[in-house]
Design a protein around this nucleic acid. Structure first.
Lengths: 186, 186
DNA sequence: AATTACTTACTTACTAATAAGTAAGCAATA
DNA sequence: TATTGCTTACTTATTAGTAAGTAAGTAATT
């Protein structure tokens, strides 16, 4: 992957998280990079190809984060996720890929749907494991199951980004604080 | 408002909740109604005009629901909201207007943004009041403030619709059950 | 009761802009 | 010399929006 191709994926991701997959064009990316839209087709023949590459990039970034957190405590791990989402908001009020792809899920191609679903499943399982571990080691104290807690986080985080866009940063922070607090309620 | 105009708003709303504001066209509506796209411009000169009418309709429907629930108990009221969201999912995996507008918020016109924000504020305040009432009458038992609980619900409901689209009905139901349960934790 | 003025609810036929995508070619590099 | 990394120039399709016209109805005037 040369620099141009990397920049294409990076910008594609930025646009998808900011505007949505259906609401950005190859030309927007081309203009920023001072190339022609045909140059993007050179690397990614169809928009779907680019979309899949962006999801793949998001996946691999998450895997890298998970790996970097391998020896971290459950609290450190959940804090890292909270921070990930806080940074999305601070970096141009972006949504996460799950949220933006989910919001037009019915229009995505089967491949994009599968990629999105697999990505979500990965995050979901990872979170569940973290919660279970934290509960086992008495680092967390909550009455739900780890699975339920994962369900809550995975719905609440995207929702907080969306409503945060509408009602502002304070609202997002309130949501994030509540999620942190949810791990120690007993 | 004649029947055609009502149908235009109804279909516009369906399409926005299913595909998103940026991903539906006047032609889609026109084809269903067997009229020409110019006929829609007759009632709604610009797409923004239709978008605003759709948000207005969503608002007035919510107000009507709130009025119908005026003498209902807090539990009945929260159940009605849960059901509202369940019905969105069952009716073609729709998103709520807040969620679909929020997902492309940065691209909406100032008027559309204001309308969305005001709509969200209305729902938010209504929920907060319901939670406060329920806590006061000891019908609900939770440790958060009513405001916090409203924040949680208003982020969790849209998020549950989005992740429900990706992971299926069971996931949505799990989320809705958790929200119901959140009102009686002490 | 008949005419006139005007509105409503559209259609036909178009425009300008933008979208994704393609085919052919060219210059630099390996 | 073959491949890589593009550009030029294009096509086809779709978009929101407009201008002009028409058929049917309604309301006021004669």
């Amino acid at each position: 992957m040369n620099n141009t191709q990397e920049q294409i994926v990076k910008l594609g991701r930025d646009f998808i998280q900011t505007f949505g997959y259906n609401s950005f064009s190859f030309k927007q990316i081309a203009d920023v990079l001072n190339i022609k839209n045909a140059a993007i087709h050179h690397y990614y023949p169809t928009k779907e190809d680019l979309g899949l590459a962006v999801i793949e990039k998001d996946k691999s970034d998450f895997m890298a984060l998970a790996k970097a957190l391998q020896v971290a405590s459950p609290t450190e791990k959940t804090n890292a996720i909270i921070n990930l989402y806080r940074n999305y908001y601070n970096d141009g009020k972006k949504l996460c890929m799950i949220s933006t792809c989910g919001s037009i899920f019915e229009q995505l191609s089967p491949k994009m749907q599968s990629a999105t679903r697999e990505h979500l499943d990965t995050i979901y399982s990872w979170l569940e494991e973290v919660f279970q571990k934290g509960a086992d080691t008495k680092e967390f104290h909550f009455s739900e199951t780890a699975k339920e807690m994962s369900t809550r986080w995975i719905a609440n985080l995207p929702g907080a980004l969306i409503t945060g866009r509408i009602r502002g940063r304070e609202y997002l922070e309130n949501s994030l604080n509540q999620l942190s607090a949810s791990l120690n309620t007993k």
